[in-house]
């Protein structure tokens, strides 16, 4: 266990959901998907600090409806992909990385929740807020990048 830990510490830590596509990939399509996604965030006012306050105060069903119906569509699509063995447009088998349970999902999840209620934004809406003209959110984004870096720097010293 000890030796394994040491080996783990000197090797790069792969990201949580790495790109599983084997063949080469054009990047423009992800920009376009992102644009559509960001526009939905703004049009449904999901980027609003007020919507997140309504959600955490249990005073509106809106965000629960958004997240709940998004999950429902996600579950059905992934089940269809698996049952019908649907491949990617390049004919690859679709591969969803397994998420291992770690203490971080509890401690880190809790810490993120505190920040979510303060900023009124998870990482996606942060980008859309900046695009919507709330340029001061650039500061929040830089701070979020700093938070990510500090986690990475001390990852091996934190309970996990």
């Amino acid at each position: 266990m000890k030796v394994e830990d040491k080996v783990k510490n000197v090797q790069p830590v792969e990201c949580e959901a790495p790109n599983m596509q084997a063949s080469k990939d054009g990047l423009l399509k992800y920009l376009i998907i992102g644009i559509l996604f960001g526009a939905i965030f703004v049009k449904a006012e999901i980027i609003s600090w007020f919507r997140i306050q309504e959600m955490f105060r249990l005073q509106s069903f809106f965000m629960y409806g958004v997240i709940g119906s998004a999950i429902a569509v996600g579950v059905i699509s992934i089940q269809l992909i698996k049952k019908l063995n649907i491949k990617t447009i390049k004919g690859e088998v679709i591969n969803i990385p397994k998420k291992e349970f770690r203490k971080g999902q509890i401690i880190g999840g809790f810490i993120f929740g505190l920040g979510w209620a303060l900023t009124g934004a998870c990482p996606g809406p942060l980008f859309a807020q900046i695009g919507s003209g709330f340029t001061v959110i650039l500061v929040t984004l830089v701070s979020a990048i700093a938070g990510t870096w500090v986690y990475g720097r001390f990852a091996d010293k934190l309970p996990n």
Binding site: A70, Q105, G108, C122, P123, S143, L158
Partner: peptide, 30 residues
């Protein structure tokens, strides 16, 4: 709201290994 809030979001999501999209939507969907 900007500095501490942003830091908590960045630190927390990475510690948790994902945010609302990676865990709540992608993770639960799979």
């Amino acid at each position: 709201f900007f500095v501490i809030g942003g830091f908590l979001v960045g630190f927390g999501t990475r510690y948790a290994g994902g945010c609302t999209s990676g865990h709540a939507i992608m993770g639960i969907s799979s």
